[in-house]
Write a protein that binds this DNA or RNA. Structure first.
Length: 289
DNA sequence: ATCCAGGGACGCG
DNA sequence: CGCGTCCATGGA
């Protein structure tokens, strides 16, 4: 059992982090801790007064600490993000106060690609269920505190699934998209290593759009939630709604022009549109959804 | 029963 | 390029 403890960590609220829509593999326990699977590690996070306690399974304690620090983006100062964004207007101040403990996780690229292809025209509880089923069917079995967990399958492991197998897991019309994208990545027609080397958000997005099932919104989610491109701005129904309510005031929120909205976010949020988007999304969705 | 969910592919003009 | 339509599934 590995263990790592943080004291007086700024910007770290379990509910804000795990329930702001960025991740699908964390579940709340009865003692208010959260347990999740990160790569081949099972991690439990618990808050006790001024301490954040991470326990879990990993090959050794040093790797566990590095994994936790990287995954939870602990070398980034979120207070700076919040101070910068708070200068914009009262709406940003309000949403930041509401979700003050949000951090953007650095999730595995491959898992994030598949997870957000599944997210298309879907809801969060069902997305979580499907990802659990995929992991159980094709991922490596893990054990933590006498309970079974499953790692998200590798590319090779998931490539064993036929379109029919995927359909059987409840993927619906997304079965072919997952199948095709898995094959493209497996045979290096699409190179994940190469993608991370591009270093320019627009170039990376252009590449991601080549994957079946990856459109503008899913690409932006991958850029933000895995590669932590803070200038990526995923527009879903909630973000469009809150941006229209606050800044655009179109009678029909569904008629808000996406390009116009991207431009507005780019101008307003000073290169941190992805971070701003996450506070706004969590704020709006918690209050109305 | 009808609508909706962190949308995208496809076909049409 | 811009726009409408269809796509599986399950919960409200």
């Amino acid at each position: 059992m590995e263990k790592y403890v943080l004291e007086n960590q700024e910007s770290f609220n379990l509910k804000h982090i795990f329930e702001c829509g960025q991740c699908f593999r964390w579940n709340k326990m009865e003692d208010d801790s959260y347990v999740g699977v990160v790569k081949n590690a099972v991690i439990k996070v618990k808050k006790e007064s001024n301490k954040i306690i991470f326990t879990g399974t990993c090959d050794n304690n040093e790797n566990f600490k590095s994994l936790v620090r990287y995954y939870f983006d602990l070398d980034t100062n979120y207070t700076e993000y919040k101070e910068k964004l708070s200068q914009i207007d009262e709406y940003m101040k309000e949403s930041i106060k509401f979700g003050e403990g949000i951090r953007i996780l650095r999730q595995d690229l491959w898992e994030t690609i598949i997870s957000f292809i599944i997210s298309a025209n879907n809801n969060i509880p069902r997305i979580k269920k499907i990802i659990d089923r995929i992991s159980k069917a094709y991922g490596r079995k893990l054990e933590f505190e006498n309970k079974e967990y499953y790692a998200f399958p590798t590319v090779e492991e998931l490539s064993k699934a036929s379109v029919e197998d995927l359909r059987g897991l409840g993927l619906g019309f997304r079965d072919k998209r997952i199948y095709n994208t898995t094959k493209m990545i497996l045979n290096k027609e699409f190179d994940l290593e190469n993608l991370t080397k591009l270093n320019d958000t627009k170039l990376m997005k252009e590449e991601l759009l080549k994957l079946d099932g990856v459109g503008p919104k899913v690409a932006d989610c991958i850029l933000l939630f895995s590669l932590k491109r803070v200038d990526a701005f995923p527009i879903d129904v909630w973000v469009r709604r809150v941006m229209n309510d606050l800044y655009i005031h179109n009678e029909d929120e569904n008629k808000v022009n996406k390009r116009e909205l991207q431009k507005l976010a780019e101008d307003k949020f000073m290169g941190l549109s992805g971070i701003a988007q996450q506070y706004l999304f969590y704020w709006k969705r918690e209050l109305e959804g």
